[in-house]
Design a protein around this nucleic acid. Structure first.
Lengths: 345, 345
DNA sequence: CTGAAAGCGCTAACAC
DNA sequence: GTGTTAGCGCTTTCAG
């Protein structure tokens, strides 16, 4: 295997530019130019060279090209996960987002490098960046990564994150329009005659704060006043939320609707309401947030606020390419819509 | 910006091995060896170099490494699509498969290059292979690509395809166990007391042939004889299948169950049965194949044969790595299971 | 044990 | 217009 193969196609399947050059009787540079469609090379010769390359199945080696050009024509899609287990599968949101991003990236003739990374040791993001395998990064964020993202944002520009805006955020973030979602939910409830609308859930994250702001705006637009007694701070866990709702019910305050911070909390509320003998949506209409699997397949089909991931993905990739071009594109919001189901019909 | 930066970290973010070498006061080769954990370098020096690299956020440039090593540590996941539109999203099977493959590949410390390719001009597969961006390929096949796959299979070994086995197949294929699926379906119907089981669907593809073989085996195992009058060749389109079933009903042949080649055909049969006044599953039990969205969310929750994609993906990646190691691993079957729902309860 | 040097396959500035 | 040449950043003989 050390003796050089002198045939035209040494080691079939590992053609290089030099081989094509020899076949065409020109220099390597000419082939390089021809294959790049460089008009310096006369069209006839260009076509001829392209033809030879094609019939022999030659394609430019991307590693070599990337090394030389310092450019990979690849976008990294980074999925930070908390542990090793197959979360990519379990989470339909993640899967849908990956699919939509892949569609958008492919559309621009870039490749997609899927980067499922277990976020244990520090520097995971730096490592991805410094490996220089991608020209830009889309990170499908979780709030836990806020610090890591912020720390690279200063020096690494071509990065866009799917995340809710946070106060001290230096990276470019795109996320669902939480405030608008809250507003939509309340507007819907008000439009169907509800007047005493509970907000259920803690406002301990940027997202929740915005959802609550939307709730307030919705009330104002509907001509309803905010009754502090109707703001119930339920923790974000099924059992605890259920208990919070039960406790609220015990206080016997009049209300005819619940806007919950999340589907999880909404369904906990539905359960508590049923136990208290209130019918949904008869006595109380319920709206959740996220349009998760729970909303569709939970105990009761739940009206919920859905983020438009198609637009979200497109926005992220748009911004990313602008940042890759040197522009300092800011973050943005992805539109939301209300999916009306049984729980508020 | 043309004046050379003489500081230790020129153009922050584009460190190279030479920079680390200078900082450590050793040669590039030593750094390379140290970073590769080569025991030739004394442990103390090795740790020292790794430390320097780490604190400066240096990571080996993958393009350069790949070029030199002729190895990318990347697996290409190829999704051939018939047209441009966002099919990746529309098809939950595709999405789940991508997720499972990504999990398996990441587990082996390889990267995933997602290759959504619109199959229009010939040579699409050769182009992917020759770009040398991946050490191996998983193709999520559609039967239409049989020729393209076969034509590269002879010279390109590290490739595994998700597809049903075909007669003249030279590539390594992994697919659901169609025969076993057919057998399971019939066994279930027989076990719930059905005796006159119709096979509905044409046997014009390798998959269908196997499903029919499973049907025969299932009958034999249940001590039932194959009645040719119960084998109904319905085309694979909703309307045509519906018509075929209606025609069969008009012939007034006694039967108490239908095993359909696919969920689509099964639901067409359910519709025809309803129109003929037969109840499902009261008068007739129906079983489909694929456990597609239709089965779960169609007019009636449908009992169906489900392929185990988790095992399928793992099998594909196992085989792929064996092929990458030079072994000539053969194709395999992924297990199937029966998901029992309303239509045959 | 360590370093110098060659070369992976390509592009582009610089000659001609 | 085309070819020669110098790297892109790395790994690995080969020499010491």
């Amino acid at each position: 295997m050390d003796s050089p193969d002198l045939s035209e196609a040494p080691e079939r399947g590992r053609l290089k530019m030099a081989d094509i050059a020899r076949m065409a009787g020109v220099s390597i540079s000419t082939v390089s130019r021809a294959l790049a469609g460089n008009p310096l090379i006369p069209k006839t010769l260009r076509d001829q060279i392209v033809e030879i390359a094609q019939t022999h199945g030659y394609v430019v080696n991307q590693s070599a090209r990337s090394l030389r050009l310092r450019k990979t024509d690849t976008i990294g899609v980074v999925i930070p996960l908390a542990d090793e287990t197959g979360q990519l599968i379990a989470d339909p949101f993640l899967l849908e987002m990956v699919g939509r991003l892949a569609d958008e990236i492919t559309l621009r003739n870039y490749s997609v490098l899927l980067n499922k990374v277990v976020v244990t040791e520090v520097g995971w993001l730096e490592r991805i960046i410094q490996s220089h395998r991608a020209d830009g990064l889309v990170v499908i964020g979780r709030s836990a990564q806020h610090e890591a993202l912020n720390s690279v944002a200063g020096t690494y520009r071509p990065m866009v994150v799917w995340a809710a805006p946070q106060p001290d955020q230096h990276y470019c973030a795109v996320g669902g329009d939480n405030a608008e979602g809250g507003r939509l939910a309340v507007a819907h409830l008000a439009a169907t005659g509800r007047r005493r609308i509970v907000f259920l859930g803690a406002t301990d994250t940027p997202e929740a704060v915005q959802r609550f702001a939307g709730y307030q705006k919705g009330l104002a637009e509907a001509g309803l006043s905010l009754d502090p007694a109707l703001v119930v701070a339920a923790p974000h866990a099924a059992e605890a939320a259920h208990a919070a709702m039960a406790a609220f019910l015990a206080r016997d305050i009049a209300f005819d609707a619940v806007f919950a911070r999340s589907d999880l909390i909404a369904l906990a509320a539905v359960r508590a309401l049923a136990e208290a003998g209130r019918s949904v949506p008869g006595d109380v209409a319920v709206v959740g947030f996220d349009d998760s699997v729970l909303a569709r397949h939970g105990v009761l089909p739940l009206t919920s606020v859905r983020k438009d991931l198609e637009v979200g993905a497109r926005t992220m990739i748009d911004l990313l390419f602008r940042r890759m071009a040197g522009e300092d594109a800011p973050g943005a919001c992805a539109p939301v819509q209300l999916v009306v189901r049984e729980s508020s019909r």
